[in-house]
Amino acid sequence: MSGRLPARFALPVTGFILSGIMTIIISGVSTFMALGFSLMALGAWPIAWISSWIIAFPTVLVVLPIVRRMVSRIVATP
């Protein structure tokens, strides 16, 4: 037993990691641009991040397969 998830979990794991990374960066930029670099902004950032991630993760699960199909029509396979 390798301790790895089966291949069928590739999409949700990809979506989970991708949405988490993207939302932490974007919510950080947005929060600090709106509030400036302050303790208030630092406290607001985790709330903004979790709120964003709750929306982004299921969105990625729906949108990623559509984007992959679109890309496969545009880009030649090696």
Rank of each mutant, 00 (worst) to 15 (best):
R4G: 10
L5Y: 13
L5V: 09
L5I: 11
L5T: 13
P6K: 09
P6H: 13
A7Y: 13
A7M: 12
A7I: 10
R8C: 08
R8E: 13
A10H: 13
A10Y: 11
L11G: 00
P12S: 00
P12Y: 05
P12M: 05
P12R: 03
T14S: 11
T14F: 11
T14D: 14
G15N: 03
F16I: 00
F16V: 01
I17Y: 10
I17W: 10
I17H: 13
L18Y: 15
S19G: 11
S19H: 04
G20Y: 02
I21K: 07
M22T: 15
M22F: 15
M22A: 15
T23S: 10
T23A: 04
T23Y: 06
T23G: 03
I24V: 14
I24A: 15
I25A: 15
I25C: 12
I26T: 14
I26F: 12
S27M: 05
S27L: 00
V29T: 11
V29H: 06
T31V: 03
F32G: 09
F32N: 03
M33S: 14
M33P: 00
M33K: 13
A34E: 12
A34F: 03
L35Q: 09
F37T: 12
F37S: 11
S38E: 02
S38R: 01
S38I: 03
L39I: 10
L39N: 13
L39M: 15
M40R: 10
M40C: 01
M40N: 14
M40F: 12
A41E: 01
L42F: 12
G43T: 03
G43A: 11
A44Q: 15
A44V: 04
W45M: 01
W45S: 00
W45E: 00
A48H: 07
A48S: 08
W49N: 07
W49T: 14
I50D: 00
I50E: 04
S51Y: 05
S51W: 06
S52T: 06
W53S: 04
W53G: 09
W53P: 05
W53N: 11
I54N: 01
I54S: 01
I54V: 13
I55C: 10
I55V: 13
I55Q: 08
I55H: 09
I55S: 09
A56G: 03
A56W: 00
F57D: 09
F57V: 07
F57T: 06
F57K: 06
F57W: 08
F57R: 03
P58N: 07
P58K: 02
P58F: 05
P58H: 10
T59A: 14
T59P: 05
V60K: 07
V60E: 09
V60H: 11
V60Y: 15
L61M: 13
L61W: 06
L61I: 03
V62R: 11
V63C: 06
V63H: 02
V63W: 08
V63F: 08
L64R: 06
P65Y: 01
P65Q: 08
P65H: 03
I66H: 04
I66S: 08
I66Y: 12
I66A: 09
I66L: 10
V67N: 08
R68S: 06
R68L: 14
R69V: 08
R69F: 04
M70F: 12
M70T: 09
V71G: 07
S72A: 04
S72G: 02
S72E: 05
R73V: 00
I74Q: 07
